[in-house]
């Protein structure tokens, strides 16, 4: 492997951007495909798309050449929770156990207290301020659970525009109907708005905040591992 190629790959990984290293197994020169490149016309486009989605490395056989090994580097999944509420208190440790990097954002000091949440994941600021510094990306799930449009709407819009792999919002169907109207007025398309999972969580009859957290995490994992079923 060329050191320059390795440096570029590591730069992409450090910036939470996906990339695939294509290695001919007969030792011919490798090439690096960044997710942000226009690889749709690449001879390997189909395999690249599948592997960017699955995140799995593996061998690809081609008709006129040596077998290729695709080293797939996608960022670890992240969960950004808007709202330091009761559901979040249960969702944070569950998501961490399941392997997610977790962040909680809530501008309301009474909720976002370090007595309630670990300091290293808590951001007692407006979502606008936090997300401008650390933007959302396709390998991030966003769950908005404050019930307050002043806090939830901006990150929901940002998540849909950033193509987050999961976007969920707490609230009844009626609440969500009003939310959909606001988001439409903000310029989002119907298909973007339909990506929001609302009412949030798998339909398992969850009653307590802790049970709702299970339902939300289950749905996030489903969106991560079975992405084709989103929005169907």
């Amino acid at each position: 492997m060329d050191v320059g190629l390795l440096q570029t790959l590591n730069t992409e990984r450090a910036a939470r951007r996906a990339a695939i290293l294509v290695s001919p197994l007969d030792g011919r020169p490798q090439r690096l495909i960044k997710h942000s490149d226009s690889w749709q016309d690449d001879p390997l486009a189909e395999a690249l798309e599948r592997r960017f989605r699955s995140g799995k490395s593996g061998i690809v056989e081609i008709a006129d050449g040596p077998d290729l090994f695709l080293t797939v580097q996608v960022p670890p999944p992240r969960l950004v929770i808007i709202g330091a509420v009761h559901i979040s208190k249960a969702l944070v440790p569950m998501a961490q156990i399941a392997g997610f990097d977790v962040a909680v954002i809530d501008p309301r000091g009474a909720f976002a207290s370090e007595a309630r949440f670990p300091a290293d994941i808590l951001h007692a600021d407006w979502p606008e301020d936090v997300l401008n510094t650390a933007p959302l990306d396709p390998f991030t799930a966003l769950a908005a659970v404050t019930h307050d449009p002043k806090i939830d709407d901006y990150p929901l819009i940002s998540a849909l525009k950033s193509d987050c792999f999961y976007v969920g919002a707490l609230g009844s169907r009626k609440t969500h109907g009003k939310r959909a109207e606001r988001l439409q007025a903000a310029g989002l398309t119907t298909s973007q708005i339909n990506r929001i999972d609302a009412p949030i969580g798998l339909d398992i009859g969850a009653a307590s905040p802790e049970e709702i957290a299970v339902a939300v995490l289950g749905q996030i994992i489903s969106a991560l591992r079975k992405p084709t079923e989103i929005g169907e």
Binding site: P75, D101, I121, H123, A134
Partner: peptide, 13 residues
Amino acid sequence: MQEYQARIDGPVT
């Protein structure tokens, strides 16, 4: 804020 940035960037340890 800085801590958040570090987490988002993914620690390359």
